[in-house]
Design a binder for these strands. Structure first.
Lengths: 361, 361
DNA sequence: TTTTGTTTCGGGTACGTACACGTAAAATAT
DNA sequence: ATATTTTACGTGTACGTACCCGAAACAAAA
């Protein structure tokens, strides 16, 4: 054990057989082999079985290079995600990942096209979805922000046999190729765990949900559940107060916070999404540096507050990687016919003032 | 802003010109174009310049698919890393990443071959390095554990014009294609930052270095520097005690720890590498649950102690990804002739009992 | 001028696959 | 029986590049 050694690793003596060899062994032409490979018509059951047997025996792997070279048609992937708005640029990161994956798979004949919708406007989502269906694509990556509309769109895709991948939030049991995004419940638990380092005894804790969208709310609630569950499981008796803020502008946030913080001994705040910077701003203005803050997402605003200590922890779920992996999942499915897990939960990352410099969104 | 929109993105009107088009425009044959592309002999300066101009004008990008298909020769990448030993299986993770990248690039004509050496035996490193040179490879990925020997090997590679990538630890200013691994100093600072949540006032803090290898020690020292720097910068006056343990067996660890913990008010320990599980084991045995523990690396042993609270935080630097990216860097350089940064610092991840389930090593 | 040599270039084939087209054989209809 | 359709399969070309072979073109030697 541990001695110097050279490992030639599995030998890989695949010898890379191709259709030609298969054809030779089956005593048929290349064309026939090609037909069974793409299970097209025009091959008798007998020869088809024979060829299939040989393919299995030889563990034939089609040469991707040659395949894409010979096939002049490009595969189209449509992406349906919220537009990057002035309000929140969270979706810039997934988009970056999507674009990166896009240029990576382009040489292999994949075209990625973006369709953006407005998070505050369901009809824009429907409109873009219809465009995608009209365009006739080979795969779809979508953020199912609006529950009902997304389900409808997914059903359409299923009918047309277009594979689709959910990103960032899931609609379980809807036959998506897979889901790529966070496990919200555990994300909340982690928030609680970190909170534990910031409070003690019977300090009060505040949970803040800031969101205009009702449809988004269930995501936030899931985090809240995870958060509370942690306190309960660990026998912590801190009072947990909750405040929903249904307007995202700073004035509203300020008003609500002032109200809820008044006459209370709140020691720390858990903000369930990326709007945490608003809260940080308020605390700074109100000179409430004594209140610790935990929130979400690696955004410039948030990082700035993290740097000078107004935010203690940020939790992030690799939004860029979500986009990247989403495209790659479709690519692998379309080109390599690969199988994979139904859901891919992203890591739950902790960002502090000491490691944000090295974080990969 | 924020309105629904469709983005066709950069148009990409490259029209994918090939050698044929270049040949047509230059009024020469494909063969001639091919010669200048590979700057082989046999082309007059005049026609060469003309072709070069056209290539530049058209921003010609060779088709990787066709290129690798037509070229029957495969490129060989050698990997030189420590063997996974019973003592520490840290290197299993980078190896996994390397293997994963290996199968990924295999279809493109890249063969990855592993050469393992013994961390406790410099001569084994040298022996394997010589084998690589004898084998004649096109690229090398290596963990430069032994400073002097690694420098010598790197120089040899440079002489033979073989590109090489450092992984896990760096030898700066040595013309490596790039370095992929952690920023050790900041890693230590993060440890200190986390430590801050565990101690208060004038609690004593212990730093433990466990390593048999002198050559490895400078890595650990770098972390130590970052750790101490954080305390200093933040005006913390906790007494920091340091203990080197130069034998990795549990008995030695136990003995040294017993000694150093005796008659002291140590409240928390920072272990600078993956041996933290030994310390956790000791604390458990000695019923010193009051002492908090921070250490390194997502290893099974460590995770077990993390789960039941014996270890508070683990810091990890994506060892698997290091291996993966190392191979990919060489692949991109060899196949795509890509340029990239001299060093790629890995994210510094924090693992707790609440997020370890979702960590990607 | 012819011969020999050298430089410069064009033509052809191969890589492994996709697909259109064509043709022989089998099945069905007349 | 022949004619017609259907089924089953083979052939050829194309994708974009690598590389070999040999033919011009030109220069230097005879």
């Amino acid at each position: 054990m541990g001695a110097a050694q050279k490992n030639d690793f599995m030998k890989e003596n695949k010898e890379l057989v191709g259709v030609k060899e298969i054809a030779r062994r089956a005593k048929v032409s290349i064309g026939t082999v090609d037909r069974v490979l793409h299970n097209r018509t025009g091959v008798s059951k007998k020869t088809k079985d024979k060829i299939l047997a040989i393919i299995a025996e030889l563990e034939y792997q089609p040469n991707i290079l040659a395949r894409r070279l010979a096939s002049k048609k490009t595969l189209n992937i449509a992406v349906l995600i919220p537009a990057v708005s002035a309000e929140t640029n969270y979706w810039k990161a997934p988009l970056d990942g999507i674009l990166e994956a896009g240029i990576e798979v382009k040489p292999y004949g994949i075209a990625v096209e973006q369709y953006f919708f407005d998070q505050n406007d369901k009809t824009s989502f429907v409109k873009q979805a219809d465009q995608i269906l009209a365009a006739g694509v080979d795969g779809v990556l979508l953020a199912p922000m609006f529950m009902k509309e997304s389900e409808k769109f997914a059903d359409e895709c299923k009918k047309l046999r277009i594979p689709y991948v959910f990103i960032n939030s899931d609609i379980p049991d809807h036959d998506s190729l897979c889901y790529i995004g966070p496990d919200l419940f555990h994300s909340g638990s982690l928030g609680a765990h970190l909170m534990r380092y910031l409070v003690s005894g019977n300090d009060q804790v505040l949970i803040v949900n800031i969101s205009k969208e009702i449809d988004n709310l269930h995501h936030l609630l899931r985090k809240e559940e995870g958060f509370k569950d942690y306190f309960k499981k660990n026998g912590l008796n801190n009072e947990i107060i909750k405040q929903d803020i249904r307007s995202t502008d700073y004035a509203s946030v300020k008003k609500e916070l002032t109200k809820v913080l008044d006459n209370r001994a709140i020691k720390a705040i858990f903000v369930t999404n990326s709007r945490v910077s608003s809260v940080a701003k308020y605390l700074q203005e109100a000179k409430r540096g004594d209140i610790k803050l935990i929130g979400y997402d690696f955004l410039e605003d948030n990082i700035n507050y993290l740097k000078n200590g107004d935010i203690e922890f940020l939790i992030s779920q690799k939004p860029k990687e979500q986009g990247y992996r989403g495209i790659m999942a479709l690519y692998n499915h379309l080109v390599h016919a690969a199988q994979f897990d139904k859901s891919y939960y992203m890591p739950i990352d902790i960002i502090t003032s000491e490691n944000y410099l090295f974080y990969n969104n």
